[in-house]
Design a protein around this nucleic acid. Sequence first.
DNA 1: GTAGGGTTAG
Length: 614
Amino acid sequence: MNPSPLKPPRNLLQTLFNSPVIIPFSRHLSTSKINQQNDLALYDELVLFNQFVHQQPLPSIKHFCKLLTRIVNMNHHYPVVISLIHRLETLEIKPDIYAFNISINCFCHMGRVDLGLSILGRVFKHGWTPDCVTFNTLIRGLCTNGNIFCARQVFDEMLVSGFEPNVVTYGTLINGMCKMGKVGDAVTLLKKVEGESESVIMYSTVIDTLCKSNHVRRALTLFSEMVENGVVPNVVTYICMMRGLCRFGLREEAVRLLDDMLCRNISLDLQTCNVLLNLISKQGWVADSHSFFDLMVERGMNPDTATYNTLINGYCLVHRLDDARRLFDVMSCARDVITFNVLINGYCKVNKINEALGLFNEMSRQNVNPNVVTYTTLIRGLCLVSKLNEALILFYKMQDCGETANVVTYSTLIDCLCKHERVTDALSLFKLMDGARVAPDVFTFTSVIDGLCKIGDVDAANEIFLELFNKKLQPNVCTYTAMIGGLCRNKRLTEAKELFYRMKESGCAPNVHTYTIMIKGYCRNGKLDEANELFVKMNESGCSPDGCTYNTIIQGFLLQNEFSAAIRYLEKLTENGFCLDAYTEALLLRFQSCGQLEFSAKKVSINDDAEERY
DNA sequence: GTAGGGTTAG
């Protein structure tokens, strides 16, 4: 087979270095593959480099540096640039500080900060003076490689050697500290440079880190301090702050921040508006997102399809399907596949499968092609209304239509089959994935593990659990909880306990479901002291019990005739505004009627809908 | 050559 004329030969560099003549190369622009275009662009630059090398007199090092920068920016060809610089040296073209900085940057990006540092030594050896960029590049490299300590040392070295750090130096170091979770150090450093107009970037970095590490109040305080210091927040600052406020459901503060931003007349583009709109919509604050939408229009912005999709999704999230539909009908720009998917998903979530299917049929009339998401959404919708066979038919139909099922499609079906106790069907689908070359993810594994546990086949579940590790996947809290639950239900308490502690050791925090399942396990095995102990522990580790946890522990005590403890928990349940479930209520009545328990059931609210989860 | 955020659906 002939090699593709579009691809440079593999030993390109070698050829170029050894060749005294310019290599002829015919270009074919018909290619559509991006990587081939990148190869072409690189090839062109390499040809140019080769021309430079053979020019007399030689172009200056500046010209070479410009070329090298282009190559780096093109597609991060760091090793290529390193070898080109090496080639310059063999040709006795003296590198300047620019060339050294480029080398350091390349080495840092290749994860070889050590080599970057050795370049610094060579800079001194050649009698050159490093500049701020030299230090900044090294500090950045050290930070991204996790060596904040060394980065700090370079920074201190800079100070004692009389080099003046600039805003970028501080920004780089602050960013590094934030990424390493040392936000306190970052704030201290930030205080040293506050007031600089460019410090908005540093403030944004710290604000973002605070928000992402659950310190949204501290972020808000820093935001105010920043404004007081005369630093004007920009769109980035607002987006970071808004995301934090939305994540913690602080609606009032979020709306105030949005108003503040609009008052400042900060120039907003459509894309930024869509990002903000998405944040508000995802919270289900439809009234706020709609007024923001109106404001966008007032300000002369033309909402695009993404704007409408975001807004429609917001209405769907709060189950206001009629409003979502109205927007869908009146939208002033073209509907795309996402518009349909959003609304179809909205209908599916409220079990309106016929409306969802109606929209699906509407798609072809409007010349919008359904994609894998459309099919997966509908499959999920069908499963939700227990139409499993129809879901399976659609699964095969989508593939007939040329749409390939992906891991989400498989996982959705497998999960639904498991939940309907059709574990054998789920397993055959699970095995089918291998042949279809679709790699199962942690969600797929969790569904299968849970399904097997629920039908009592804990050994099979455990095998799948081990397979997950073999596939280099990391179990999440649901995976662990499913497995622990299975072990508990099968009276394999010691193994369950072991896994519970192993989960914590691996850095996966148990949630309310995990704790409740463990508590139930203890209760069922008559270990009420340990159940009690864990109940206290879960509170201490910041995980609040829910109604199900209370019901579980009350049932445990009642069944062991530990009535006073049961009543104590019953009171706590009431205090915290939770309800009894049907089973707890029946137990209470049973013990009351045989005179073993004196308790007025009137004091507690009973909720027949409260489900027994485990 | 060096510092920050975000792009709608399962």
